[in-house]
Amino acid sequence: MQHTATISRMKAAGAPPRLSAFAQWADRHFKWLLVAPAVLLILALSIYPLLFSMVVSFINYDFQVPGHAFVGVKNYERVVFDPVARWSLVLTACLSGLSVAIEFVLGLLVALTMVRSFPGRGVIMSILIVPLFISPVIVGQAWTLLLQRPFGPTNYILTQLLGQEVTIGWMTESPWLYVSLIIADVWQWTPFMFVILLAGLTAISPNLYEAAELDSVNAWQAFWAITVPHLGPMMLLALTFRLLDAIRMFDTIFIMTGGGPGTQTYTASYYLYTVGFTQFHLSQATAGSWLFLIFTALVVMLLVRRLLKAEPV
Protein backbone atom coordinates (compact mmCIF):
# COMPACT_ATOMS: atom_id res chain seq x y z
CA MET A 1 0.00 0.00 0.00
CA GLN A 2 1.20 3.47 -0.79
CA HIS A 3 1.60 6.01 1.93
CA THR A 4 0.82 9.59 1.68
CA ALA A 5 3.77 11.91 2.01
CA THR A 6 3.39 15.37 3.41
CA ILE A 7 0.65 17.10 1.56
CA SER A 8 0.94 20.71 0.82
CA ARG A 9 -1.34 22.99 -1.03
CA MET A 10 -0.52 23.63 -4.67
CA LYS A 11 -0.99 26.84 -6.51
CA ALA A 12 -4.63 27.18 -7.47
CA ALA A 13 -5.20 26.37 -11.12
CA GLY A 14 -8.33 28.48 -11.08
CA ALA A 15 -11.23 28.23 -13.45
CA PRO A 16 -10.62 27.31 -17.10
CA PRO A 17 -10.39 30.06 -19.70
CA ARG A 18 -13.63 31.83 -20.51
CA LEU A 19 -15.54 30.50 -23.47
CA SER A 20 -15.95 32.51 -26.61
CA ALA A 21 -19.43 33.81 -27.34
CA PHE A 22 -19.95 31.06 -29.89
CA ALA A 23 -18.76 28.34 -27.52
CA GLN A 24 -21.11 29.64 -24.85
CA TRP A 25 -24.00 29.58 -27.26
CA ALA A 26 -23.06 26.09 -28.45
CA ASP A 27 -22.75 24.81 -24.90
CA ARG A 28 -26.15 26.20 -23.96
CA HIS A 29 -27.88 24.64 -26.94
CA PHE A 30 -25.69 21.56 -26.92
CA LYS A 31 -28.43 18.97 -26.78
CA TRP A 32 -30.33 20.49 -29.67
CA LEU A 33 -27.20 20.89 -31.76
CA LEU A 34 -26.48 17.19 -31.36
CA VAL A 35 -29.88 16.08 -32.58
CA ALA A 36 -30.02 18.67 -35.34
CA PRO A 37 -28.20 16.84 -38.17
CA ALA A 38 -30.13 13.61 -37.75
CA VAL A 39 -33.45 15.35 -37.31
CA LEU A 40 -32.91 17.61 -40.31
CA LEU A 41 -31.93 14.66 -42.49
CA ILE A 42 -34.99 12.70 -41.46
CA LEU A 43 -37.18 15.72 -42.00
CA ALA A 44 -35.68 16.32 -45.42
CA LEU A 45 -35.79 12.78 -46.68
CA SER A 46 -38.70 11.26 -44.86
CA ILE A 47 -41.16 13.83 -43.60
CA TYR A 48 -40.90 16.25 -46.50
CA PRO A 49 -41.33 13.47 -49.08
CA LEU A 50 -44.31 12.17 -47.15
CA LEU A 51 -45.97 15.57 -47.22
CA PHE A 52 -45.05 15.98 -50.85
CA SER A 53 -46.57 12.62 -51.67
CA MET A 54 -49.68 13.66 -49.81
CA VAL A 55 -50.00 16.51 -52.30
CA VAL A 56 -49.14 14.29 -55.25
CA SER A 57 -51.81 11.81 -54.28
CA PHE A 58 -54.51 14.45 -54.81
CA ILE A 59 -53.30 15.80 -58.13
CA ASN A 60 -52.58 14.32 -61.50
CA TYR A 61 -48.93 13.29 -61.62
CA ASP A 62 -48.68 10.79 -64.38
CA PHE A 63 -45.97 10.42 -67.00
CA GLN A 64 -48.66 9.34 -69.43
CA VAL A 65 -51.13 12.18 -68.76
CA PRO A 66 -49.76 15.71 -68.96
CA GLY A 67 -50.57 18.44 -66.43
CA HIS A 68 -50.86 18.52 -62.64
CA ALA A 69 -54.54 19.24 -62.13
CA PHE A 70 -56.25 18.68 -58.81
CA VAL A 71 -58.23 15.47 -59.08
CA GLY A 72 -59.60 15.01 -55.58
CA VAL A 73 -59.74 11.43 -54.41
CA LYS A 74 -59.69 9.95 -57.90
CA ASN A 75 -56.23 8.47 -57.41
CA TYR A 76 -57.42 6.77 -54.25
CA GLU A 77 -60.54 5.48 -56.01
CA ARG A 78 -58.42 3.94 -58.74
CA VAL A 79 -56.45 1.97 -56.18
CA VAL A 80 -59.40 0.97 -54.01
CA PHE A 81 -61.36 -0.30 -56.99
CA ASP A 82 -58.41 -2.08 -58.55
CA PRO A 83 -58.88 -5.84 -57.88
CA VAL A 84 -55.13 -6.33 -58.23
CA ALA A 85 -54.55 -3.88 -55.39
CA ARG A 86 -56.90 -5.74 -53.11
CA TRP A 87 -55.37 -9.06 -54.11
CA SER A 88 -51.88 -7.73 -53.37
CA LEU A 89 -52.94 -6.64 -49.92
CA VAL A 90 -54.44 -10.03 -49.14
CA LEU A 91 -51.36 -11.76 -50.48
CA THR A 92 -49.09 -9.53 -48.43
CA ALA A 93 -50.99 -10.41 -45.28
CA CYS A 94 -51.03 -14.13 -46.04
CA LEU A 95 -47.43 -14.44 -47.18
CA SER A 96 -45.99 -12.38 -44.36
CA GLY A 97 -48.21 -14.01 -41.73
CA LEU A 98 -47.34 -17.49 -42.87
CA SER A 99 -43.62 -16.83 -43.27
CA VAL A 100 -43.34 -15.17 -39.88
CA ALA A 101 -45.25 -17.99 -38.20
CA ILE A 102 -42.97 -20.62 -39.70
CA GLU A 103 -39.87 -18.58 -38.89
CA PHE A 104 -41.05 -18.19 -35.32
CA VAL A 105 -41.67 -21.88 -34.70
CA LEU A 106 -38.52 -22.99 -36.45
CA GLY A 107 -36.45 -20.26 -34.81
CA LEU A 108 -37.75 -21.22 -31.39
CA LEU A 109 -37.01 -24.90 -31.95
CA VAL A 110 -33.49 -24.20 -33.11
CA ALA A 111 -32.96 -21.78 -30.24
CA LEU A 112 -34.05 -24.47 -27.79
CA THR A 113 -31.45 -26.84 -29.18
CA MET A 114 -28.78 -24.19 -28.75
CA VAL A 115 -29.44 -23.00 -25.21
CA ARG A 116 -27.03 -25.33 -23.49
CA SER A 117 -23.46 -25.02 -24.54
CA PHE A 118 -21.83 -27.93 -26.33
CA PRO A 119 -18.64 -28.33 -28.31
CA GLY A 120 -18.88 -26.55 -31.65
CA ARG A 121 -21.71 -24.29 -30.55
CA GLY A 122 -19.78 -21.14 -31.43
CA VAL A 123 -19.09 -22.28 -34.97
CA ILE A 124 -22.67 -23.43 -35.52
CA MET A 125 -23.88 -20.11 -34.19
CA SER A 126 -21.70 -18.25 -36.69
CA ILE A 127 -23.05 -20.36 -39.56
CA LEU A 128 -26.68 -20.02 -38.55
CA ILE A 129 -26.62 -16.23 -38.58
CA VAL A 130 -25.08 -15.95 -42.04
CA PRO A 131 -28.39 -15.46 -43.94
CA LEU A 132 -28.98 -12.25 -41.99
CA PHE A 133 -26.04 -10.60 -43.71
CA ILE A 134 -27.03 -11.46 -47.26
CA SER A 135 -28.95 -9.20 -49.58
CA PRO A 136 -32.50 -10.50 -50.14
CA VAL A 137 -31.73 -10.17 -53.82
CA ILE A 138 -29.01 -12.76 -53.49
CA VAL A 139 -31.27 -14.95 -51.39
CA GLY A 140 -33.78 -14.85 -54.20
CA GLN A 141 -31.03 -15.57 -56.65
CA ALA A 142 -29.76 -18.54 -54.63
CA TRP A 143 -33.18 -20.13 -54.41
CA THR A 144 -33.78 -19.45 -58.07
CA LEU A 145 -30.67 -21.43 -58.85
CA LEU A 146 -31.93 -24.28 -56.71
CA LEU A 147 -35.53 -24.31 -57.86
CA GLN A 148 -35.53 -23.15 -61.45
CA ARG A 149 -36.37 -25.65 -64.12
CA PRO A 150 -34.49 -27.24 -65.78
CA PHE A 151 -31.25 -26.18 -64.15
CA GLY A 152 -32.09 -26.44 -60.45
CA PRO A 153 -31.37 -29.74 -58.72
CA THR A 154 -34.50 -29.67 -56.53
CA ASN A 155 -36.79 -31.63 -58.81
CA TYR A 156 -34.06 -34.17 -59.43
CA ILE A 157 -33.51 -34.66 -55.71
CA LEU A 158 -37.24 -35.00 -55.08
CA THR A 159 -37.51 -37.50 -57.90
CA GLN A 160 -34.78 -39.61 -56.34
CA LEU A 161 -36.30 -39.35 -52.87
CA LEU A 162 -39.90 -40.05 -53.86
CA GLY A 163 -39.09 -42.62 -56.50
CA GLN A 164 -41.35 -40.98 -59.06
CA GLU A 165 -40.86 -38.25 -61.62
CA VAL A 166 -41.28 -34.76 -60.10
CA THR A 167 -41.58 -31.87 -62.52
CA ILE A 168 -42.74 -28.91 -60.51
CA GLY A 169 -42.49 -25.42 -61.93
CA TRP A 170 -41.43 -23.91 -58.64
CA MET A 171 -41.61 -20.37 -59.84
CA THR A 172 -44.37 -20.61 -62.39
CA GLU A 173 -47.08 -22.91 -61.01
CA SER A 174 -49.65 -21.70 -58.60
CA PRO A 175 -49.29 -23.12 -55.15
CA TRP A 176 -45.59 -23.84 -55.61
CA LEU A 177 -44.49 -20.30 -56.29
CA TYR A 178 -45.86 -19.23 -52.93
CA VAL A 179 -44.04 -22.13 -51.33
CA SER A 180 -40.85 -20.98 -53.02
CA LEU A 181 -41.26 -17.40 -51.83
CA ILE A 182 -41.97 -18.54 -48.30
CA ILE A 183 -38.99 -20.89 -48.28
CA ALA A 184 -36.70 -18.08 -49.36
CA ASP A 185 -38.08 -15.80 -46.65
CA VAL A 186 -37.87 -18.52 -44.02
CA TRP A 187 -34.31 -19.27 -45.01
CA GLN A 188 -33.27 -15.67 -44.61
CA TRP A 189 -35.19 -14.68 -41.50
CA THR A 190 -35.46 -17.74 -39.26
CA PRO A 191 -32.04 -16.76 -37.89
CA PHE A 192 -33.56 -13.45 -36.82
CA MET A 193 -36.09 -15.21 -34.62
CA PHE A 194 -33.50 -17.68 -33.50
CA VAL A 195 -31.01 -15.04 -32.37
CA ILE A 196 -33.53 -13.00 -30.40
CA LEU A 197 -35.27 -15.98 -28.83
CA LEU A 198 -31.94 -17.52 -27.91
CA ALA A 199 -30.96 -14.31 -26.15
CA GLY A 200 -34.23 -14.52 -24.25
CA LEU A 201 -33.79 -18.19 -23.40
CA THR A 202 -30.26 -17.80 -22.08
CA ALA A 203 -31.49 -15.00 -19.84
CA ILE A 204 -33.83 -17.39 -18.00
CA SER A 205 -32.18 -18.61 -14.84
CA PRO A 206 -31.33 -22.33 -14.99
CA ASN A 207 -32.33 -22.51 -11.32
CA LEU A 208 -35.95 -22.35 -12.42
CA TYR A 209 -35.57 -25.50 -14.48
CA GLU A 210 -33.67 -27.27 -11.75
CA ALA A 211 -36.40 -26.42 -9.28
CA ALA A 212 -38.97 -27.72 -11.75
CA GLU A 213 -37.01 -30.90 -12.24
CA LEU A 214 -36.96 -31.51 -8.50
CA ASP A 215 -40.72 -31.06 -8.53
CA SER A 216 -40.70 -33.79 -11.20
CA VAL A 217 -42.24 -31.56 -13.81
CA ASN A 218 -41.64 -32.92 -17.29
CA ALA A 219 -39.95 -30.96 -20.04
CA TRP A 220 -43.18 -30.15 -21.84
CA GLN A 221 -44.79 -28.76 -18.69
CA ALA A 222 -41.64 -26.84 -17.85
CA PHE A 223 -41.71 -25.29 -21.31
CA TRP A 224 -45.22 -23.95 -20.79
CA ALA A 225 -44.80 -23.03 -17.14
CA ILE A 226 -41.35 -21.43 -17.28
CA THR A 227 -40.10 -20.80 -20.80
CA VAL A 228 -43.20 -19.31 -22.39
CA PRO A 229 -44.03 -16.75 -19.67
CA HIS A 230 -40.42 -15.64 -19.31
CA LEU A 231 -39.89 -15.46 -23.02
CA GLY A 232 -43.18 -13.67 -23.65
CA PRO A 233 -41.91 -10.10 -24.06
CA MET A 234 -39.06 -11.32 -26.23
CA MET A 235 -41.43 -13.31 -28.44
CA LEU A 236 -43.63 -10.31 -28.88
CA LEU A 237 -40.64 -8.18 -29.78
CA ALA A 238 -39.29 -10.66 -32.31
CA LEU A 239 -42.71 -11.13 -33.91
CA THR A 240 -43.38 -7.41 -34.10
CA PHE A 241 -40.08 -6.49 -35.64
CA ARG A 242 -40.19 -9.33 -38.08
CA LEU A 243 -43.78 -8.79 -39.14
CA LEU A 244 -43.19 -5.10 -39.79
CA ASP A 245 -40.37 -6.05 -42.14
CA ALA A 246 -42.17 -8.98 -43.74
CA ILE A 247 -45.04 -6.84 -44.99
CA ARG A 248 -42.55 -4.92 -47.14
CA MET A 249 -41.66 -8.08 -49.05
CA PHE A 250 -40.37 -7.05 -52.45
CA ASP A 251 -36.81 -8.06 -53.30
CA THR A 252 -37.19 -11.83 -53.52
CA ILE A 253 -40.36 -11.46 -55.58
CA PHE A 254 -38.62 -9.09 -57.94
CA ILE A 255 -35.87 -11.64 -58.53
CA MET A 256 -37.77 -14.93 -58.31
CA THR A 257 -41.13 -14.40 -59.97
CA GLY A 258 -41.26 -10.82 -61.17
CA GLY A 259 -44.77 -10.67 -59.72
CA GLY A 260 -45.93 -13.30 -62.11
CA PRO A 261 -47.28 -15.32 -63.56
CA GLY A 262 -49.67 -12.52 -64.33
CA THR A 263 -50.22 -10.70 -61.10
CA GLN A 264 -50.28 -13.82 -58.94
CA THR A 265 -47.33 -12.84 -56.76
CA TYR A 266 -48.01 -9.12 -56.45
CA THR A 267 -47.45 -8.00 -52.88
CA ALA A 268 -48.44 -4.50 -51.82
CA SER A 269 -44.95 -3.15 -52.37
CA TYR A 270 -44.63 -4.91 -55.68
CA TYR A 271 -48.01 -3.67 -56.87
CA LEU A 272 -47.20 -0.08 -56.01
CA TYR A 273 -43.83 -0.41 -57.67
CA THR A 274 -45.34 -1.60 -60.93
CA VAL A 275 -48.03 1.06 -60.91
CA GLY A 276 -45.47 3.76 -60.24
CA PHE A 277 -42.41 2.65 -62.14
CA THR A 278 -43.50 0.46 -65.00
CA GLN A 279 -46.86 2.06 -65.77
CA PHE A 280 -45.75 5.49 -64.51
CA HIS A 281 -49.08 6.29 -62.83
CA LEU A 282 -47.12 8.07 -60.13
CA SER A 283 -49.98 9.81 -58.40
CA GLN A 284 -51.99 6.60 -58.28
CA ALA A 285 -49.03 4.76 -56.78
CA THR A 286 -48.59 7.54 -54.27
CA ALA A 287 -52.21 7.33 -53.23
CA GLY A 288 -51.82 3.58 -52.87
CA SER A 289 -48.69 3.96 -50.80
CA TRP A 290 -50.57 6.28 -48.46
CA LEU A 291 -53.23 3.68 -47.97
CA PHE A 292 -50.55 1.07 -47.35
CA LEU A 293 -48.85 3.43 -44.93
CA ILE A 294 -52.06 3.77 -42.98
CA PHE A 295 -52.43 -0.01 -42.79
CA THR A 296 -48.86 -0.28 -41.57
CA ALA A 297 -49.38 2.47 -39.04
CA LEU A 298 -52.35 0.59 -37.63
CA VAL A 299 -50.26 -2.55 -37.27
CA VAL A 300 -47.44 -0.56 -35.71
CA MET A 301 -49.75 1.08 -33.23
CA LEU A 302 -51.30 -2.20 -32.23
CA LEU A 303 -48.08 -4.15 -31.91
CA VAL A 304 -45.69 -1.50 -30.69
CA ARG A 305 -48.11 -0.34 -28.02
CA ARG A 306 -48.30 -3.88 -26.72
CA LEU A 307 -44.55 -4.12 -26.92
CA LEU A 308 -43.95 -0.99 -24.90
CA LYS A 309 -46.29 -2.23 -22.22
CA ALA A 310 -44.54 -5.59 -22.07
CA GLU A 311 -41.17 -3.81 -21.46
CA PRO A 312 -38.62 -6.36 -22.63
CA VAL A 313 -35.41 -6.52 -20.65
Binding site: Q2, H3, T4, A5, T6, I7, S8, M10, A13
Partner: peptide, 11 residues
Protein backbone atom coordinates in the same frame (compact mmCIF):
# COMPACT_ATOMS: atom_id res chain seq x y z
CA UNK B 1 2.04 19.30 -11.01
CA UNK B 2 1.03 15.73 -11.79
CA UNK B 3 4.38 14.48 -10.53
CA UNK B 4 4.03 16.53 -7.37
CA UNK B 5 0.49 15.31 -6.69
CA UNK B 6 1.53 11.72 -7.32
CA UNK B 7 4.44 12.10 -4.91
CA UNK B 8 2.20 13.48 -2.20
CA UNK B 9 -0.25 10.60 -2.58
CA UNK B 10 2.46 7.97 -2.96
CA UNK B 11 1.29 6.83 -6.39
Amino acid sequence: RVAEAARMLGI
